[in-house]
């Protein structure tokens, strides 16, 4: 039909657009109406909390190790509630990529965060590395030798091992934290760390606070300091997530579908 009458197709197209002119629109007015994401959406990194309001993350660093572009950078209080293990250099993403590329290429990486962890005499580490051929497969002997030299594993030494052997810091840290006989602090510091740990509220305080929040009942014990302590405990960060929700905000089940907590 439209082949026979010239311009009929054009006219029908015009009518179609005119009809669409009056139809409901597809635009989502973004800041006012945030689009409803699906529960499975995994567009952003986020640390999750369990039903007691504590972080599910065990800081095992396997995610940082597996991340192909090394965008995950971690830190926080370790699972034994002892000391703070934030090593990530406070640098931009671009610099981190740069460092990563350098490290992969095998060249030494200039690291501005060295001073932060206190420079040490690296000769024993060098010796240990040279003895084991700078091979990350011999990580455990290297770490043991290092510990023998310093009495503990200084961060600068681990970074140096990471730089020279090409193993990721996350991997070395994971290895070192797995073995009980390797430690990250001087002998005397362990007592200090224990004292710090003792000054933190025991886990039961979280439970009682949680119970108070959920059941509405009075907290059982230790009412003096839980909120601040909770904040301190939940300070782990994943780079890429804008803000990690503090554990003092416990996700109730009132939202129904059991979605993971989501910022905003």
């Amino acid at each position: 039909m439209s082949q026979l009458v010239p311009g009929l197709g054009l006219a029908r197209g015009m009518l179609l657009t005119l009809r669409r002119f009056f139809e409901p629109k597809a635009t989502i007015r973004y800041p006012e109406e945030p689009p409803e994401g699906s529960p499975k959406f995994r567009g952003r990194l986020q640390l999750l909390y369990d039903e007691y309001g504590t972080l599910k993350c065990e800081t095992c660093f396997q995610c940082a190790q597996a991340c192909p572009i090394e965008c995950i950078d971690m830190g926080g209080i370790d699972t034994k509630n002892r000391y703070h293990i934030h090593w990530g250099p406070p640098e931009t993403y671009g610099e981190r990529r740069d460092e990563s590329a350098l490290r992969r290429s095998g060249r030494p990486v200039p690291d501005p965060a060295y001073e932060h962890f206190g420079p040490i005499d690296l000769a024993p580490v060098e010796a240990a590395l040279a003895e084991y051929d700078y091979d990350p497969k011999n990580l455990l002997p290297i770490l043991e030798a290092t510990q023998q030299a310093y009495g503990y594993l200084p961060v600068a030494a681990i970074k140096h091992i990471s730089n020279m052997s090409g193993a990721w810091y996350a991997m070395i840290y994971g290895t070192a934290s797995y073995y009980g006989h390797l430690r990250f602090e001087k002998k005397g510091d362990r007592e200090q760390a224990a004292a710090v740990a003792a000054s933190r509220p025991p886990e039961s305080s979280y439970r009682s606070a949680l119970q108070a929040a959920l059941m509405g009942g009075a907290p059982v014990e230790d009412t003096t300091q839980p909120p601040a302590a909770n904040k301190a405990r939940g300070s782990s960060k994943v780079r890429g997530s804008s803000k990690v929700r503090g554990s003092s905000k416990v996700r109730g089940s009132s939202k129904g579908r059991g979605r993971p907590p989501r910022a905003n």
């Binding site: 657009t17 005119l18 669409r20 002119f21 139809e23 629109k25 597809a26 635009t27 007015r29």
Partner: peptide, 13 residues
């Protein structure tokens, strides 16, 4: 505005 409405958009608002 008119082209936006025909495109099923909202256009300037």
């Amino acid at each position: 505005k008119v082209i936006a409405l025909m495109n099923l958009r909202l256009g300037p608002d």
